[in-house]
């Protein structure tokens, strides 16, 4: 469906992507970009790679690389930013050391299991080292497991919860949906009530 309406999600996502590329994904990254001319042409992937190299408070490098790889399959980077750009691993870093501490053990166990599967498929490889197709194949086989459900839940929370939980960086998750977080709105709110108001002198009030 093509729709020229600016309210359409695709339009705002393209805006979001443009803003993301122009501004970087955080204030700090913006400063970094402004002082590194080459990086001004950075793709979202390159920016995310920089984010991946960041040190986490709680996660060790193997955990962060694994959670990054899995969450980036669950909500992938496509023509719009995904879990990686939204800093979902940063959410995990905060969550697993606080309100979601219960998830550390099952997720560690699951990563070990996925690594073993990965090594069977591609000897010498961990899960996060597989290519996307292989990762998707292994995850598809895990879809009905409790660990997958837990990972999906936390990835979604990281993507769409308020950014003070560590993810949803620059509200990229919300922009994916078209959710514009404001504290006040005026009617009309959507297409159908706008049309209704046009065709009726009042709202029946």
């Amino acid at each position: 469906m093509q729709n020229k309406n600016n309210n359409h999600p695709d339009a705002s996502h393209n805006d979001a992507r443009r803003r993301f590329l122009q501004q970087g994904s955080s204030a700090a990254l913006g400063v970094w970009l402004s002082t590194h001319w080459g990086a001004c042409l950075a793709s979202a992937e390159q920016a995310a790679a920089a984010a991946r190299q960041q040190r986490y408070q709680f996660l060790n490098p193997h955990q962060s690389a694994s959670l990054d790889a899995i969450s980036a399959q669950l909500i992938p980077t496509t023509d719009t930013p995904g879990a990686r750009e939204a800093g979902v691993v940063n959410f995990f870093d905060q969550a697993l050391s606080s309100h979601a501490a219960f998830a550390v053990e099952p997720l560690n166990g699951w990563i070990t299991e996925l690594d073993a599967e990965a090594a069977r498929l591609r000897p010498g490889s961990n899960f996060h080292q597989l290519d996307a197709a292989d990762q998707q194949q292994l995850l598809t086989a895990q879809e009905d497991t409790p660990a997958f459900g837990l990972m999906r839940f936390l990835t979604v929370v990281g993507m769409f919860a308020m950014s003070h939980y560590g993810g949803n960086k620059n509200n990229l998750g919300w922009e994916l949906l078209g959710f514009d977080h404001r504290h006040a709105w005026q009617p009309p709110f959507g297409y159908y009530d706008a049309e209704y108001a046009r065709h009726n002198s009042g709202d029946g009030a």
């Binding site: 669950l74 909500i75 992938p76 719009t80 994916l176 949906l177 959507g190």
Partner: peptide, 16 residues
């Protein structure tokens, strides 16, 4: 779908 590119596309397509 509950994850992946098509899931993400549908979230964006359905939310509003």
């Amino acid at each position: 779908p509950g994850w992946g590119a098509e899931y993400k596309r549908m979230l964006s397509d359905y939310y509003l």
